[in-house]
Write a protein that binds this DNA or RNA. Sequence first.
DNA 1: ACAAAAGTGTTTTAACTACACCCATGG
DNA 2: CCATGGGTGTAGTTAAAACACTTTTGT
Lengths: 242, 242
Amino acid sequence: MYGSANVTERQAQAPALAISTVIFALRTDPGSGRSEIWLPLVRRIRQPHLGKWALPGGPLGGSESLQDAAARNLRETTDLEPTYLEQLYAFGGLDRAATQRLVSIVYWALVRPDQADLARESENVRWFRASEAAGLAFDHDEIVAYALERLHGRIEHGSVAYHFLGDRFTLTQLRGVFEAVLGRPLDPANFRRQLRSARDIAATDEVLQGGRNRPPRLYRYTGQNAQAPPPARTPADDRPTS
Amino acid sequence: MYGSANVTERQAQAPALAISTVIFALRTDPGSGRSEIWLPLVRRIRQPHLGKWALPGGPLGGSESLQDAAARNLRETTDLEPTYLEQLYAFGGLDRAATQRLVSIVYWALVRPDQADLARESENVRWFRASEAAGLAFDHDEIVAYALERLHGRIEHGSVAYHFLGDRFTLTQLRGVFEAVLGRPLDPANFRRQLRSARDIAATDEVLQGGRNRPPRLYRYTGQNAQAPPPARTPADDRPTS
DNA sequence: ACAAAAGTGTTTTAACTACACCCATGG
DNA sequence: CCATGGGTGTAGTTAAAACACTTTTGT
């Protein structure tokens, strides 16, 4: 597949640098009422991998930070502002793209369901269930898989789950987020207790009316900064969006 | 839209891509006998930041993976092979370097004490205590601080501690690693139990002779892959070294 | 015999699990 | 008044922390 001329040519040129973003949102299945993780993909309109679905992304602009470039990916594909944005990993394998050496710094983002509902879909932008996103262009299958792993880890320890929801939410909604990410049911009683102690949530005096059952209390997230761990003391870049 | 003028313009403003590596090793203080974390730094022999100490690194070669470039950093500065190598973070702030836009993909590595003792020191390569590495070039102070945080996190959960040591080690040596990284003393009795259950270590039938006290048993690490979490299923690059 | 580190045992405490039970609402 | 999800209580299990205690070496 690679002629020797191709290899020498590759050695000569500096690697291209691109930013891609994995955007996660929660959607509630109308049928079962269960929460699921979705992500938007864009259809490639050029070679290589023409016609395949791929992560939103593009070259890094000369005068924007990595984080800004990732946020721009969101805006340009879905008109959304992220509620959470964190660097995922830098992928730089030699065989990622056939024609040129490509290094991609990948971010992952969370958006709220109300935002995701507003997001535009078009011929070349479509939302997929994370579990059904396969056959993507380049190595994007693996990138999505790794992003899901990271999400899994972050939700257990950190305070990421809230960023899937609005500023007011019920504990059952929050539990739905955990269950969708972890992929297993959680005991409602224990889940409630675990959050009451230690986590940064506070009960409001409001309840959610209109349901079929007893109106659940609404809570809000009080953790000041929706912080992403990586650049602990803001290394001049990549400050996560609150 | 893609005229040659545009291409050259893009090339002109395209960020430079470099790989740097934070190399950690353990050294036992001759006086107190306590373990401490050290790292090698190289003196800059050009502007900018001429004369300051900096992390080993350099531009990414056209035909090497990111991981390979990081391993090359180790070889070129210290003649060492890493026992552990993991991607840390990609730093890409606009103000990282004065003259040009610079994106650095930073790795961190662990080496064994016997390797570190063999590592050459020179006029322009010197080892520093991690706690005393300050005033470095560029944003390397922050990068080192973040690498220490990551090390801290990895040692609590993962199986990273063993890579500071040789293939045979006493539990007290291993506890020394934990104490040096975590910065607090640990109960020897509980530490022993915690490792016996769950962690991948096995007792050998050998003991370490020559000490002043009762000879401690030697253990070895049986975890097959010294794995780093990031690319869970080897995204065509960056496989951590065993 | 003594000091000092290796190694074992035991008690206490906290956290998580599982599950029984009561409460409030719409139909 | 019944079904359904919201919310509380409680016993059993498991893991970790604190610390007393025994063992083995060199001097």
